[in-house]
Amino acid sequence: MNKDIKDITIKGLNVWYGPVHAVKGIDLNVPAGSITTILGANGAGKSSTLKAIAGGLNYTGTIMIGDESINDLPVYKRVRNGVVLCPEGRGIFYQMTVKENLLAGAYTTKNTNLDLVFDIFPFIKDRLNQIAGTLSGGEQQMLAIARALMANPKYLMLDEPSLGLAPIIIQKIVEVIKQINESLKITVILVEQNTSVALSIAHYAYVFENGKVALSGKASELVGNPIIQEKYLGGVRK
Results as ranks from 00 to 15, higher is better:
I10V: 06
I180K: 04
W16Y: 15
R127H: 04
I227R: 13
N225V: 02
V213R: 11
Y155Q: 04
V223T: 05
M1V: 01
W16I: 01
S196F: 08
I5P: 00
I145V: 03
T112E: 15
V207G: 02
E68D: 12
T112R: 14
Q193F: 01
T187M: 00
R78Y: 10
D72L: 10
T97C: 03
Q179T: 15
N14A: 00
Q130L: 04
D159C: 04
Q193C: 01
S183R: 15
F121S: 01
G133W: 07
I177W: 10
S136W: 13
H21E: 04
V30A: 03
G61W: 10
M157P: 12
A166K: 13
H21G: 00
I201G: 00
Y17Q: 06
D67W: 00
Q130K: 08
G105F: 10
L73K: 13
K99D: 13
P31T: 03
L102E: 12
N194M: 09
S69V: 07
V223M: 12
K3V: 06
M150V: 02
V98Y: 07
T112D: 12
N14L: 03
T97D: 05
T97Q: 08
G91P: 10
Q179G: 14
K99C: 08
R78Q: 03
I170Q: 09
N81D: 11
G234M: 12
I53S: 05
G18S: 05
K110T: 12
D126V: 06
Q229E: 15
K6E: 15
M157I: 06
F208L: 14
Q140H: 09
G89V: 04
I169Y: 13
I10Q: 05
P31F: 08
I5T: 14
Q140A: 04
L135D: 01
N210I: 04
I227C: 00
K212R: 14
G137Y: 09
A148L: 11
K125G: 02
G137R: 10
G133M: 08
L135E: 03
L233I: 07
I53E: 03
G224W: 06
